[in-house]
């Protein structure tokens, strides 16, 4: 057994558009320890969704690899990958579009079991009933259609579908973003329960920083296709190292009325991934940027307290 279930090594994805190559994910390396929840945060367009898809090989990487339990996923052929999919699943953002409206809930949840030839019809039905119970729905709901459920309930159906094959690893792509705050909390607690019960490993993609702080053991911050900071959530949140992480965290609203904190406002927008800045990708919006930042690409270097940050001036500015 390895302690690292999923090891991402130098993963890049470049899309080819009419206006030239789009560097969606650039040279990302990340270890996801077995049984942990790693949060991946970043603005819209930072490449977090593409990274999540590429890790699962739903999108073919341009370069780099994902090692799943020691196996290089890129070395697998179609058949090998199909078999490997039993062990890794995804939960989507949109609870409406992620469920086929023409299939009954029982067929939605049993799809993976059918695809991998698991169990007889009767066993599948029992499994679906057990899964519905596990995600807080009732067994008799299996004969209904997705449109008969609320958003939160649909998201539970999507979670049950992902759990059907008893996977080791789940990518949750903005899985609570589309829900009301009260429902978000229910679904987050459900995910935590499931993690504890099943010992699941999860990559949780979100733009909501509070959600990630609550849920995740490790937080990884992404900016313009690159990881800029990775570390234990408690450390990253209490003492952000990278200038981008600092700016991001200072934007979280405080729950007390009238409370103020020193906010580090970012200037301008995230640059286009069609033409990323040279050197450090964040330098165009960084108030600590110097001439050297335009020349050298900072690597994700360890800081000693289990954290890594990609900034050339880390020791000077902290």
């Amino acid at each position: 057994m390895h302690d690292t279930l999923v090891s991402i090594r130098g993963l890049s994805k470049t899309f080819h558009s009419d206006r030239g190559p789009v560097y969606a994910v650039k040279d990302v390396s990340l270890d996801i320890p077995r049984g942990s929840i790693v949060g991946l945060v970043g603005e819209s367009g930072s490449g977090k969704t593409t990274l999540g898809r590429t890790v699962l090989r739903l999108i073919e990487p341009s370069s780099g690899s994902t090692y799943f339990d020691g196996t290089d996923l890129n070395s697998l052929n179609t058949k090998g990958m199909q078999a490997m999919r039993r062990r890794m699943q995804i939960i989507f953002q949109d609870p409406v579009a992620s469920l086929n409206p023409r299939l009954r809930v029982r067929d939605v949840i049993a799809e993976g079991l059918v695809a991998h030839g698991v169990g007889s019809g009767r066993e599948r039905e029992q499994k679906v009933a057990a899964l519905l119970d596990e995600v807080g729905l009732k067994a008799e709901h299996m004969n209904r259609y997705p449109h008969e459920f609320s958003g939160g309930q649909r998201q539970r159906i999507g979670i049950a579908r992902a759990l059907a094959l008893d996977p080791d690893f789940i990518v949750a792509d903005e899985s609570v973003s589309a829900l009301d705050v009260s429902i978000q909390a229910q679904v987050l607690n459900l995910l935590l329960d499931i993690r504890d019960r099943r010992g699941l490993t999860m990559l949780f993609i979100a733009h909501d920083l509070s959600v990630v702080e609550y849920l995740c053991d490790v937080t990884a911050v992404m900016y313009l296709g690159r990881l800029v900071e990775v570390g234990p959530s408690a450390r990253v949140y209490s003492e952000p190292a990278h200038p981008y992480t600092r700016a991001l965290l200072s934007a979280i609203p405080l729950p007390e009325p009238g409370a103020k904190r020193g906010r580090e406002l970012l200037q301008g927008d995230i640059p286009s991934p069609l033409a990323p800045p040279s050197g450090c990708v964040f330098r165009t919006r960084c108030r600590h940027a110097q001439a050297t930042c335009a020349e050298t690409v900072p690597s994700l270097s360890p800081r000693g307290d289990g954290r890594k940050a990609a900034c050339l001036r880390l020791s000077e500015i902290s």
Binding site: A83, M88, I90, A97, N100, E111, G112, A115, R161, L165
Partner: peptide, 26 residues
């Protein structure tokens, strides 16, 4: 391009299953 087709690929469903159950039905 809908997520439920991507979900089917993630589950390991065959192309013929995706075409008949997810695409043609809809």
């Amino acid at each position: 391009e809908l997520p439920y087709v991507e979900a089917a690929r993630a589950l390991g469903s065959s192309t013929s299953y995706i075409l008949s159950r997810h695409v043609l039905l809809n």
